[in-house]
Simulated assay, not measured.
Amino acid sequence: MSTTVTPTIKHTALSDFKEITKMRLSLSVVFSSVAGYFLGADTISLKIVLLLALGGYFMVGASNAFNQIIEKDLDALMHRTKNRPVASGRMTVNTAFLIACVFTILGIGILYSINAQTAMFGAISIFLYTSVYTPLKTKTPLSVFVGAIPGAIPFMLGWVAATDNFGIEPGTLFALQFFWQFPHFWAIGWFLFEDYKRGGFFMLPTGKQDKGTAVQIILYTVWTILVSIVPVFGVTGQLKLSIVAAIIVLSLGLVMLYYAIQLYKKMTEKAAKQLMLSSVLYITLIQIVYVIDKFIR
């Protein structure tokens, strides 16, 4: 007689802490912020880099903790999120709230030590994510537009940290990451459509996995590519891009566009996953290319 053993996931206080603050997402935000700082800084200050990394991490961690408190009942309905600390009951709302508040204070305080504008944008990011984006997710697909604002802040936050100035340069970095959010999150919304539906979330622009959504994904991918090569034309102030770098950036964008078109043709969850993965690779490599180009140009 054979016995079937169901594997269990061991949850520790550390693993729950990583989950409540979404450590991997937070680290990706830190990466974007530091890349923006390298682009804006005349001379690199390791102290500012460290402060920006810590402040950015706390800022995103706070937003995610607040989000999981607000959505704990809905998270419990979805396969992807039902084992989150608060949704599963392993962590109390009070504990999560304490973490969120401490992270908010630390995040804004650390960013303020860099300069006031950096702290202001950090505070705006936390507010929009928790107070506007999160409640709207169960009401309207327009929530993605609101969520794209705090999602686009990190790249430009680094430039503001370096220069204490908001102008065309950080505005361009913001626009690049803002438009990128749509194909990225709509791809996620596509392959997690059924799971999101269990929680009552409206993530796709048409509310369905249809051609209308696929067309909008293609359009926003094109806009992302166009914004990403604008600095090569010399119209974005101190944010510049060499012709070689622009060609590389364009090529990376065309790869992402290829997968967006494949989603339109195939309309499958597999195609949506491929687009999501290509979008993550795209935004990461774009930031690396921008930074390398600045220092070798």
Rank of each mutant, 00 (worst) to 15 (best):
W180M: 08
F202G: 07
Q177M: 13
F201N: 03
Q177C: 08
L142R: 14
Y196C: 13
F155A: 09
S143C: 15
A152T: 04
G158A: 07
G212H: 12
V146T: 10
G171T: 07
A161T: 06
K211G: 11
W180C: 05
L142K: 15
Y220N: 11
F174E: 00
D195S: 10
T213C: 13
E169M: 08
L157C: 11
F179H: 02
G158P: 08
P183R: 10
A162R: 02
V215D: 07
W159I: 06
Q216M: 15
W190G: 09
T221C: 15
L176R: 01
Y220S: 10
E194H: 15
G199R: 08
D195T: 12
E194L: 14
P205S: 12
G207R: 06
M156A: 14
T206P: 07
P170L: 06
F178D: 00
A187S: 15
W186F: 10
F155G: 00
A187F: 07
G158R: 03
E169K: 11
P154W: 04
G207W: 01
A214C: 12
W180Q: 03
A214F: 08
I153G: 01
F201V: 12
P170A: 09
A161I: 03
Q181L: 12
E194S: 14
F174K: 04
H184W: 10
I168Q: 10
F201S: 09
A187E: 06
G167E: 10
P183K: 08
G212E: 01
S143I: 06
T163Q: 13
A161H: 02
A152S: 12
G158N: 05
D164I: 11
L157W: 00
N165I: 07
F179Q: 01
